[in-house]
Amino acid sequence: MITLRHFNTSDVGQLVTYLNDKEVTQYITGAIPSPYTNADAFWWIEHANQSEYIQAIEYQGDFVGCISATVGQFEYANSAELGYWIGKGFWNLGITTEAVKQFCELLFNTNKLNRLYVSVVAQNIASVRVLEKNGFRCEGILQSASCKLDPVTGEKQYYDECLMAMVSR
């Protein structure tokens, strides 16, 4: 059973573990501190719980990841950018697909949003597939749109990104 909920202080240990895993953070935003500390996790929980657009993902009673939306401003106030991650031990179980489904339904039904989008690193095939299963379509490829440092060499790596979007039905 997959549930979306607020964060709890009991999630701190898992937040730190998951967000210090290079495979989990490989393609997600560089805004997440590295290394990720207990202080970072406590800050995040306080911040997240003040927003209706940030939810913890729970699977069979265990905290396994996070999903969020950043709502646009002005003429973009009816659309939001989706973001999510899940702990490696929970990959390939359909959890992320179901969490995205539940969160999109929530956003469309309760927040008057018309469009959701994600800019996902093209090499992140699993994430692209999660989005496609939920009705997102590729609107285009953003060439060399993001840059991350290679965790081993420290050299810059540029990634193409697929701009995936879904419009409320």
Rank of each mutant, 00 (worst) to 15 (best):
P33E: 07
S34I: 10
S34G: 05
P35C: 06
Y36D: 09
T37E: 10
T37F: 11
T37D: 07
T37H: 11
T37P: 13
N38I: 12
A39V: 04
A39P: 00
A41I: 00
W43S: 15
W43M: 15
W44E: 08
I45Y: 00
E46R: 07
E46W: 02
E46L: 05
H47F: 13
H47V: 04
N49R: 12
N49V: 08
Q50A: 08
E58R: 01
E58T: 02
Q60W: 03
Q60S: 11
G65C: 08
G65S: 09
G65N: 06
C66R: 05
S68Y: 09
A69I: 09
A69Q: 09
A69S: 10
T70D: 10
V71N: 03
G72H: 05
G72C: 10
F74V: 11
A77R: 15
N78M: 15
N78Q: 15
A80V: 07
E81S: 14
E81Q: 15
L82K: 00
L82C: 02
Y84S: 04
W85H: 01
I86G: 02
K88L: 05
K88W: 03
K88N: 14
G89F: 14
G89A: 11
F90T: 07
N92K: 12
L93R: 15
I95G: 03
T96H: 05
T97E: 04
E98T: 12
E98Q: 15
E98I: 07
A99M: 03
V100F: 04
V100E: 02
K101V: 03
F103V: 05
C104F: 01
E105D: 13
E105T: 14
L107E: 03
L107Q: 03
F108M: 13
T110G: 05
K112A: 12
K112G: 11
L113N: 09
N114P: 02
N114T: 10
R115T: 12
R115K: 15
L116C: 06
Y117T: 01
V118K: 01
V120K: 00
A122K: 11
A122Q: 12
Q123E: 15
Q123F: 13
N124Y: 04
N124W: 02
I125E: 08
V128L: 05
V128W: 00
V128R: 08
V128N: 04
R129A: 07
L131C: 07
E132S: 01
K133Y: 09
K133P: 02
N134R: 11
N134A: 09
N134T: 12
E139N: 11
E139D: 14
G140R: 02
I141Q: 08
I141W: 08
L142R: 12
L142Y: 06
Q143V: 12
S144W: 06
S146Y: 06
S146L: 10
S146W: 05
C147W: 00
C147N: 06
C147I: 05
K148M: 11
L149R: 15
L149I: 10
L149K: 15
D150F: 10
V152M: 04
V152K: 11
V152L: 08
T153R: 03
T153G: 08
G154Q: 10
K156I: 04
K156Q: 13
K156N: 10
Q157C: 12
Q157V: 13
Y158R: 14
Y158I: 07
Y159R: 14
D160R: 03
D160S: 09
E161V: 01
E161A: 05
E161F: 02
